[in-house]
Structure formats: structure tokens, C-alpha cells
């Protein structure tokens, strides 16, 4: 564990909690892409199946359980409890154009052709593009609530910090995982446009198109 990974995990946890609380307190999921949240729930489910097969640490297990729990709770709030506030017309990204290619790629390019490893690879590739429906929705509506931009900032920051974590681990431990690194770079690059808008226009309230 290093500082980049710790802060990255906490930033990821913050993003997940911010979104869940925002929906719960405002009793509305307006402006939130339910499709992205479903993709994140799939990412966590396919990546954390090793919860059933191996114990790494209390921290690792707790975080995985929290991530999975919050992801499904968020999907539940969007599609069940507050479904009247779900803006389905603007959440129109064709996720099958993400899931199918990602699935194919996971079968073709992976570290080991085993069930758990292919699922893990699928979750890594899927996570790198899972935010696209949300960014697409914001570009269609042309606006985002401030709390939603904080959610996106924390979410984008987490994987950016993981990039530093991988540099750290390569330098100090000689460890690197090319699949995770390449997907992490793609994931972070997708946020760059948003990061620029978030930093340059934060606080004044803004309408922006990605």
C-alpha cells in the first residue's frame, strides 16, 4: 500500500458516498446516468468475486463489500425508489456498444485464460469506459449539478492517483500490470475534458458541454 493508492481508494469511496447521499437526500436522481451506475455495479461484481475465494486483508475485504453494496444501493435508488425522477430520455447511451467490445477484448487480451482472470480483465476494461454514459448525458443536457461535478472529480481523481500508484510500485517493487495501466490511462484521459472544465469554472455554477 502506498499513499497514492490510499488516497485514490478514499477518493473513490468519497465519490461513491457523495453520489449515494446526493440521491438519497435530494430524493432525486435527475442528471444521473443510471446506465453508468449499472456498469459500475457490473465492474465491482465481476472484479470482486475473489471475495468468495481469497482473503487479502480486512481493508481489502471491507472496501470491496462497501463498493458493491453502495453500487447496488445506488442502482436500486435510481431504478426503483426514485425512478420517477430518472431522466431516461437523456440517459440514452448505447451501452451494448461498450459491453460487447469490452467483453471480446477481455477474452482476447488477458493475463490468463481462466474464468476469474477473464472476469477481472473484463471489469478493468469496462471500468475505463463506464463513465461514458454519464458524460454523454451531461453533454446532452448541457448542465450538471455542482454535487454531480464533485462526484465526477473524485471518481476521475481516483484512477489518476492509481496511475501514480503504479509508477510507485514499478519503481519500488518492480511490479506492473500492463492491462490495468493501459485501461487506467484511457479511463483518466476520458476525464481530462471534464477536469479542465471543473477546475476552470468551479464555484461559479456553470453550464458546460463535454
Amino acid at each position: 500500500m502506498n499513499i497514492f493508492r490510499l488516497i485514490g481508494d478514499l477518493s473513490h469511496l468519497a465519490a461513491i458516498i457523495i453520489l449515494l447521499l446526493k440521491i438519497w437526500k435530494s430524493r432525486s436522481c435527475a442528471g444521473i446516468s443510471g446506465k453508468s451506475q449499472i456498469l459500475f455495479a457490473i465492474v465491482f461484481t465481476t472484479r470482486y468475486l475473489d471475495l468468495l475465494t481469497s482473503f487479502i486483508s480486512l481493508y481489502n475485504t471491507c472496501m470491496k463489500v462497501i463498493y458493491i453494496g453502495c453500487a447496488y444501493a445506488t442502482v436500486y435508488l435510481i431504478y426503483m425508489k426514485f425512478r420517477a425522477t430518472y431522466d431516461g430520455n437523456h440517459d440514452s447511451f448505447r451501452v451494448e456498444f461498450l459491453v460487447v467490445p469490452v467483453g471480446g477484448l477481455a477474452v482476447l487480451i488477458n493475463h490468463d485464460f481462466s474464468f476469474l482472470e477473464i472476469l477481472w480483465t473484463f471489469s478493468i476494461y469496462l471500468e475505463s469506459v463506464a463513465i461514458l454514459p454519464q458524460l454523454f448525458m451531461i453533454s446532452k443536457t448541457g448542465e450538471a449539478e455542482t454535487i454531480t461535478t464533485h462526484y465526477l472529480f473524485c471518481l476521475g481523481l481516483y484512477r489518476a492517483l492509481y496511475l501514480f500508484n503504479w509508477i510507485w510500485r514499478f519503481y519500488f517493487e518492480g511490479f506492473f500490470d500492463m492491462i490495468a495501466i493501459v485501461a487506467g490511462v484511457v479511463q483518466t484521459v476520458l476525464y481530462c475534458d471534464f477536469f479542465y472544465l471543473y477546475v476552470t469554472k468551479d464555484g461559479k455554477g456553470y453550464r458546460f458541454s463535454i
Binding site: 493508492r5 481508494d9 473513490h12 475473489d50 481469497s54 487479502i56 486483508s57 481489502n60 472496501m63 470491496k64 463498493y67 493475463h111 490468463d112 481462466s114 482472470e117 477481472w120 492509481y162 500508484n165 511490479f175 500490470d177 500492463m178 492491462i179 490495468a180
Partner: peptide, 10 residues
């Protein structure tokens, strides 16, 4: 290669 080590990252 990659899968030898435990996947200790989230």
C-alpha cells in the same frame, strides 16, 4: 506474470 501475485488492488 500478472496473475501469479494476488490481486491486492481494488
Amino acid at each position: 506474470d500478472g496473475d501469479a501475485k494476488q490481486k491486492d488492488e481494488l
